[in-house]
Design a binder for these strands. Structure first.
Lengths: 118, 118
DNA sequence: ATTTTGTGGAACCAAAAGGTTGCATATATT
DNA sequence: AATATATGCAACCTTTTGGTTCCACAAAAT
């Protein structure tokens, strides 16, 4: 039973749940009311989210409110950030290419001006 | 057969594969050589990664080199970024609290100065 | 020409994931 | 006290996932 943030956010339903309770804390029924699936199914998703620390539970009488605690998402964005330089490098060389095109275009424009100006 | 980036990076083996070929393009055997599992297992992981666009294949003779193409990871980091304000907000109020503590401490220090200066 | 190497993929399997119904229990409401 | 509501969770089912072995085929190497 692997339970890390990467796996937690892999499921679209769980991402929706995160979206909902990030706005304001809700209890299971309130969350389940917005889905087709049963309360138990939502309960299981929420359990996974609490087990990996993306949600905390605040009890009020018999009701339990789920609160988003999304700092753990940093694990994911940190992992992604280490690769950003790779695709930025690619984009940089694209930019360079475009600049080169532009320089060439300038020359062409000059030629045009000289050769075809009306 | 859902095939989105969130699900693709959920598996730790696939994240390792991404890490490896981000350094330099490799073929299946080279990748599989670094894992305990079979070539076929790696082949399947790579297939998933290509199907969601995180990897492209460059063929050289009978060899196929996998290249990382990680721009799609933006989908994930964009999703995370929309929530950063939530946990930053929490950090902000912590900072405010610390500032308040510091202000109170200043007053205490002043009192100390007045009362206990040598 | 024959053998070796690199690869894709079918067929199969066990475990995990995501769902359900049904029941127990604690807290509010009447 | 009796009823209604909010919740946790066991038991069960189906589909997906991650793995395997085995075979086919194309390109290199001998």
């Amino acid at each position: 039973m692997r339970r890390d943030v990467f796996q937690a956010i892999a499921d679209p339903t769980r991402r929706e749940i995160i979206c909902m309770i990030a706005q304001k804390p809700l209890n299971v029924n309130a969350v389940a009311g917005n889905f087709e699936v049963s309360r138990t199914a939502i309960y299981k998703h929420v359990k996974i989210l609490t087990e990996c620390g993306l949600i905390v539970i605040k009890q009020h009488g018999r009701e339990r409110y789920y609160e988003a605690k999304l700092q753990k998402l940093n694990e994911v964005s940190d992992w992604i950030e280490q690769y950003r330089k790779f695709w930025n490098a690619k984009l940089d060389s694209l930019e360079e290419y475009l600049n080169k095109l532009q320089r060439e275009n300038k020359i062409t424009s000059k030629n045009k001006k000289h050769g075809k100006q009306k």
